[in-house]
Simulated scan of single mutants.
Amino acid sequence: MRRTAVVTGASSGIGEATARLLADRGFRVVCAARRAERVEALAAGIGGVAVACDVSVDADVARLAEAAGGVVHVLVNNAGGALGLEAVADADVDLWRQMYETNVLGTLKVTKALLPALVAAGGDGIIVNVGSIAGLLAYEGGGGYTVAKHGVHVMTETLRLELFDQPVRVTEIAPGMVHTEEFSLTRFGGDRERADRVYEGVPGPLVADDVAEAVVWMATRPAHVNVDLLVLKPRAQAAPHKVHRLPS
């Protein structure tokens, strides 16, 4: 019987790449994302299951759990994202709330809903939370996002402590600069010029497939191996605020 994996935020970027790679490894992949058309196309292409799901909405999460079924082997909590780059003094409270609800409360809701199915996997269950180096370090202009990703990081650590005697592994991957089609575009409200400047001159930022390969590697270690935290950055990036750029 095929093992089941659930990937949230699967309509693009890291989530889509992870879903494709898990399907290549033989998993039945339940692909969840808000954009129904995109996630349906993805699921059709990989032989998976599509669920239109906003992880901050209880009814959507309940439908996701139903579609996943009674046994889930891998949960990749990838839904999230960054909005804005204002200083704390100029923060848009609504954007902070949206980031917190998606990154933190969305991860919480999906984990709660699927935890019984992960336990039912009989020792083969694993949670991979997609965090960020923003969850480990602070940087100017990143207040709302760093707060949200710090929340994901501490939730992961807490859950691991609370489930220490349960047959479920709890892990986190914290990527640095990843050049995907939408992350920075979303952060800057669709401003393509500002989004492109984030990666301008950077030799070899990570791409979605780099992170997906690491996620799947973590998820397919032997059942007794727990990769607590994997930090993944491009060679050009030493820290969120320190990135090597080639002269234009």
Results as ranks from 00 to 15, higher is better:
28 R>I: 02
34 R>A: 02
190 G>Q: 11
228 D>A: 14
157 E>N: 10
18 T>H: 11
230 L>V: 07
207 V>W: 08
137 L>M: 15
18 T>A: 07
158 T>H: 13
154 V>F: 11
44 A>H: 13
191 D>T: 10
92 D>P: 09
216 V>S: 03
231 V>L: 06
120 A>W: 11
91 A>H: 02
83 L>S: 01
82 A>I: 00
13 G>R: 08
88 V>A: 15
133 I>F: 05
162 E>F: 05
109 K>E: 09
206 L>Y: 05
131 G>N: 03
71 V>Y: 03
146 T>K: 05
176 G>T: 00
76 V>P: 00
126 I>R: 14
91 A>K: 01
223 A>Q: 13
12 S>K: 15
85 L>T: 12
124 D>S: 13
166 Q>W: 04
37 E>W: 03
35 R>T: 11
112 K>T: 13
30 V>S: 03
53 C>L: 05
34 R>G: 03
236 A>E: 05
48 G>R: 00
75 L>T: 05
135 G>A: 10
179 H>G: 08
93 V>A: 11
215 V>N: 04
225 V>A: 12
44 A>G: 15
204 G>L: 14
18 T>P: 07
193 E>P: 06
68 A>G: 01
84 G>L: 01
244 H>F: 15
196 D>V: 01
84 G>E: 03
14 I>S: 08
247 P>R: 15
96 W>N: 11
230 L>I: 00
26 G>K: 12
187 R>D: 00
215 V>M: 05
109 K>T: 10
235 R>M: 12
130 V>Q: 12
247 P>V: 15
147 V>M: 13
122 G>Q: 11
8 T>S: 12
80 G>P: 05
226 N>D: 12
18 T>Q: 06
30 V>I: 04
8 T>V: 06
73 H>L: 06
82 A>G: 10
225 V>T: 13
96 W>Y: 15
102 T>L: 13
95 L>P: 00
95 L>H: 08
84 G>S: 03
239 A>P: 06
14 I>C: 12
148 A>P: 00
101 E>M: 14
141 G>A: 11
230 L>Y: 09
57 V>I: 10
124 D>A: 15
196 D>C: 07
120 A>H: 08
173 I>V: 09
152 V>Q: 13
94 D>N: 07
3 R>L: 08
12 S>H: 15
158 T>E: 08
219 A>M: 02
164 F>I: 11
134 A>W: 07
248 S>E: 13
160 R>F: 07
63 R>W: 10
66 E>M: 06
179 H>N: 15
215 V>A: 00
91 A>T: 03
9 G>P: 03
162 E>N: 10
154 V>D: 09
55 V>R: 04
160 R>K: 07
155 M>H: 15
170 V>E: 09
227 V>S: 09
